[in-house]
Amino acid sequence: MKKTIKLISAVVIVLCVSAFTINKTSTSEGYKIGDVAEDFTLKNVDGKMVSLADYKNAKGFIVTFTCNTCPYAVAYEDRIIALDKKYAPKGYPVVAIMPNNISIKPDDNLDAMKQRANEKGFTFPYLIDKEQTVYPKFGATKTPHMFVLQKTKKGNVVKYIGAIDDNYKDASSVTTKYVEKAVDALLQGKEVEQTTTKAIGCSIKA
C-alpha cells in the first residue's frame, strides 16, 4: 500500500513539473501577430519616464529592442534613425529599448546608452528595460528585434515581428525592407503581407 502511495505521489509530481514547464514555455513566447501589446513605462536616456500612452497623436509604433554592444545592432543604427525620420512625421515613431542585463553587458548601462544616443543623434527615445520585464512580454530574443504596432480602439496591435530588412551587412544591398513595407501597408489601410521574419542579431543577455 505504501509503495502504491509513493508511486502515485511520484507520478503526480512528474505531471505537475511537466505542466509547469509547458505553461512556462507557452507564456514566455511573447506576442503573436494580432495580439494587443501592453503599455510600459521605462526610463529614457534623458532621465524621463516614457510610455506609449504619451504619444497621443501616434497611429502606431516601431518598437526596436537594441543595444550599444551588439555588432548587429550597431550596424543597424543608421537605418533605425532613418526609420524614425521617415515615419515619425507620419505617425509611426521609433521607440528603442535596451533589454540586456547590464551586469553581463556593463557597456549597455544607462550612461553608456546616453553617450551613444548623443554621439549618433538619436531622434527617438532610447529606454532601458532595467528590470527586464518588457522584452519577455514582447518575446524579443535578439538585438535588434523589431515590432510594428498599430494603434486601434482595442490597443496597440502587433502587426509585424522580425528583422528590419534582409541584409544587415550592407544597407545598399538590401532587397526587401520588411519594416518599411509593413508600415507603408498600414498607412495605406492595407494588411501587412509579410508579418513575420527571423530576427538577426545577438541574443538578449538575461
Rank of each mutant, 00 (worst) to 15 (best):
K154R: 14
K154G: 12
K154L: 14
G155K: 02
G155S: 07
G155Y: 07
N156F: 09
N156G: 08
N156H: 09
N156T: 06
V157Y: 09
V158D: 08
V158A: 10
V158P: 09
K159L: 09
K159H: 01
Y160T: 05
Y160L: 00
Y160A: 04
Y160D: 04
I161P: 01
I161K: 09
I161A: 01
G162T: 02
A163H: 10
A163E: 12
A163T: 08
I164L: 10
I164C: 02
D165E: 00
D165A: 00
D166E: 07
D166Q: 08
Y168A: 11
Y168Q: 11
Y168W: 14
K169A: 13
K169N: 13
D170G: 05
A171M: 10
A171G: 12
A171Q: 13
S173N: 14
S173V: 10
T175F: 07
T175N: 10
T175D: 03
T175G: 08
T176N: 14
T176K: 14
T176Q: 13
T176F: 10
K177T: 14
K177W: 12
K177S: 15
K177Y: 14
K177G: 12
Y178Q: 05
Y178K: 04
Y178D: 00
Y178S: 00
V179P: 02
V179D: 04
V179Q: 02
E180H: 04
E180C: 06
K181V: 08
K181Y: 12
A182I: 07
A182W: 01
A182R: 04
V183N: 05
D184H: 04
D184N: 10
D184R: 03
D184E: 11
A185W: 03
A185C: 03
L186R: 05
L186G: 08
L187A: 00
L187C: 07
L187S: 01
Q188T: 12
Q188K: 15
Q188L: 14
Q188I: 10
G189T: 04
K190P: 11
K190S: 11
K190N: 12
K190T: 10
K190V: 10
E191K: 12
V192S: 09
V192T: 06
V192D: 06
V192H: 05
E193A: 14
E193Y: 09
E193K: 15
Q194G: 09
T195K: 14
T195S: 11
T195Y: 05
T195I: 11
T195G: 06
T197W: 01
T197F: 02
K198Y: 09
K198I: 13
K198S: 12
A199K: 01
A199E: 06
A199W: 02
A199D: 06
A199P: 07
I200H: 12
I200S: 13
G201W: 02
G201R: 01
C202G: 00
